[in-house]
Design a protein around this nucleic acid. Structure first.
Lengths: 126, 126
DNA sequence: GTTCATTACGTTATGTTATAACATAATGAA
DNA sequence: TTCATTATGTTATAACATAACGTAATGAAC
């Protein structure tokens, strides 16, 4: 099931909600229930093969080589495309900044909203 | 109503869900409905007087001087305390990084999870 | 001072996201 | 064969969020 869910996520360049995934899988698994998909998503995100986009309540397949690191996501507000950038330097800066106040960071949620290159180009200049 | 909602948020150092706010306001406004609170929250976040914590589906009062800038939130996974840090340099770095790939950033969601100073101190050393 | 646009709020219903609690089946090690 | 483990199914419900429409208060324009 994890394989199936990951395949559905990987087929899109935008984030899918758990219920979007269910809709996709319904044809092959007519009886599929939310619990099943959430369980698969939990395992995949745990293992870093998928990520949860907190600002969208949705999920994307991991498309970087090293699935174990914190990543930065860009989310196009126009077309919904999501891109994952590894950015160890900035993540380290953030952890350091937090450490100044005694905060021990364990997980970074970094999601940047805006226009992707292609949608930005479509916007007529002022 | 916005004033009431903001007061409820400001009274806590952790994020409150919209429904938490409703529960608090129920005593003064027995008939209050989700719509009302969500409307107030939308106006407050729009104006920067409150922020939505995406990773919690919850809201906090803004407690910085300049309510108009992007902020970084730390969220204690133990006690739930939320802290807001202005960090223009890092936000600028992020925007610049994104710009390299042609992405025009408009909104930054930066939420760091971990242990706050006080909870970190409570954890017995290994 | 009545009209009318605007704004805020109420009411009802529903849509969307997520989990709890418990049952069943498949797998493989002892 | 037994039993522990893991995966999945089933049912129900909790938690988060918005749509669509109605009503009341406010204040500017005439």
């Amino acid at each position: 099931m994890q394989t199936e869910v990951l395949a559905v996520l990987a087929a899109k360049d935008c984030a899918l909600s758990a219920y979007d995934v269910i809709k996709q899988l319904r044809s092959s698994y007519p009886q599929i229930a939310p619990t099943t998909v959430y369980r698969a998503l939990a395992a995949l995100t745990e293992r870093g093969q998928a990520h949860r986009l907190e600002s969208q309540n949705a999920f994307v397949a991991c498309n970087c080589d090293r699935p174990d690191h914190a990543a930065i996501f860009s989310v196009c507000t126009d077309c919904g495309a999501v891109d994952e950038s590894p950015a160890p330097a900035i993540v380290a800066d953030l952890s350091d900044l937090m450490k100044e106040t005694g905060f021990a960071a364990t997980r970074h949620v970094i999601e940047i909203h805006g226009l992707c290159a292609s949608c930005d180009a479509d916007v007529p200049p002022l």
